[in-house]
Nucleic acid binder design. Structure first.
Lengths: 101, 101
DNA sequence: AACATAGATAAGCACTTGCTTATATGTTTA
DNA sequence: TAAACATATAAGCAAGTGCTTATCTATGTT
């Protein structure tokens, strides 16, 4: 877990993970999913984004396993993949809180 | 701290924070600084990057207060700004570890 | 089977980003 | 004060990114 212990592959994945969370649209999606599971259409409506844009972002989030999928008929539900993601958000939020004090 | 409690400004800052950590070069710099305080030249040598590139990235890291500065004569030392940054890295690293299992 | 619905993918464009080269600022030493 | 050293900044370019419009796939309904 120490920096020295990171393999190159882990390192690249970590950068990609942060990069993926670093886009405002994707962060809003992840935020929304941290509240509850949502389907594509709900996300698009809720965040006032086009459906293709949402799908596009969800694909990236899926690729890095930040979100997971559950299919029910022709509806596809998304939720956060694991508890690390939520902790990552909150750890980041704490840092940002400090910035504004 | 819940998503609903985030102001717009906090939200934007959070996205910028992740985005800043999402660049491989900057992540390498932050990684290195999580081991120990380093000056600009040391970082450039250690990571085989040009001095202007390192300065450029450090400026961004400074802007988001991910790193802090200490000047000693004509040498400028950088280190992680607070303990949140280190936790953010480690939380991310844990997620990535899970990806590779 | 034909149609409707939910979502995924593709192509193309406007915009952003990170790097390099060149130069400027600021601090120490001769 | 002039020269040397450490770092910061600026301009410009190549590459990457996110959005839109258009289309495709898959599941469900009649």
């Amino acid at each position: 877990m120490a920096p020295e212990g990171q393999t190159k592959k882990q390192f690249v994945l970590l950068a990609e993970t942060f990069q993926t969370l670093g886009d405002p649209s994707r962060l809003r999606i992840v935020w929304a999913l941290s509240v509850k599971e949502l389907c594509v259409g709900e996300i698009a409506t809720l965040l006032a984004m086009s459906q293709p844009a949402v799908s596009h972002h969800l694909r990236m989030l899926r690729t890095l396993r930040l979100v997971k999928v559950r299919r029910d008929g022709r509806t596809t539900f998304y939720s956060l993949d694991d508890e690390h993601i939520e902790r990552l958000l909150h750890e980041g939020a704490k840092h940002v809180e400090d910035l504004l004090v």
